[in-house]
Design a protein around this nucleic acid. Structure first.
Lengths: 114, 114
DNA sequence: ACAAGGCATCGACGATTGTCGATGGGTTGT
DNA sequence: ACAACCCATCGACAATCGTCGATGCCTTGT
């Protein structure tokens, strides 16, 4: 006799084909997300986004209630992620968003912040 | 005699005013970023984004090279972040992107994935 | 020469995360 | 009744993360 039809289309144990997702993209996008996955770093990025002039570490240290080393550490992470740029001027180190951000990254930040 | 003018506008030890960044926004946005800050979860979200029909855990378990418990764990995180929805159908649990995602979140995902 | 300030780096610490195997509950076919 | 399958949850473990204080290097003002 014929097998009884299941109420769903797919047989038990069979799995449908997933939409292809590029592994490289996932890796890269996850790195960007990780860089942004912290309130302090997000605040920094948003501040740099809004103030189109560079900001030094001492500015953030004064505003955010964290130690200078922590602030510096977070900024280093943003720099390592390719989001910010730094420039020394006498005793200060000024940070700004990189002017050569990938357009997609810039759009994403705009969507996130604005 | 008058103090010598520094070559920069700001006096030593003084800090400029940072653009205001909402603390609540930073918290919330960071939570969203954390949910997306993993290649596996990003792959899942992208797959759900592209395939507009629900996908069950076994689909991901078959495709991604991770244990079933890990897949389930990641999906639970996405659900906790309010990104996905689940529905049981016989032995399967189907997941899909929440249809009531905040418009800003939806735009962000679109920008990130597409 | 000296003191003071800005900053990066180091080492340490508890907290969180990603992963696994094991277990158990629920559903279906035999 | 039983076996097979899907799935969520638990406990464990190593790895990473966020934070701090201490230290040392530059730069600048006295």
């Amino acid at each position: 006799m014929a097998l009884k039809q299941l109420p769903v289309l797919r047989q038990r144990g069979e799995c449908c084909v997933l939409p292809a997702v590029d592994v490289g993209w996932a890796e890269e996008a996850a790195n960007l997300m990780k860089a942004l996955a912290d309130p302090t770093r997000l605040t920094m990025v948003a501040a740099l986004w809004k103030a189109k002039s560079p900001i030094c570490i001492c500015d953030f240290t004064a505003d955010l209630e964290l130690s200078q080393s922590t602030i510096s550490h977070h900024m280093a992470r943003l720099k390592e992620a390719g989001l910010v740029d730094s420039e020394k001027d006498s005793i200060w180190t000024y940070y700004r968003l990189r002017h050569d951000l990938a357009p997609s990254t810039r759009k994403l930040l705009g969507q996130l912040i604005a």
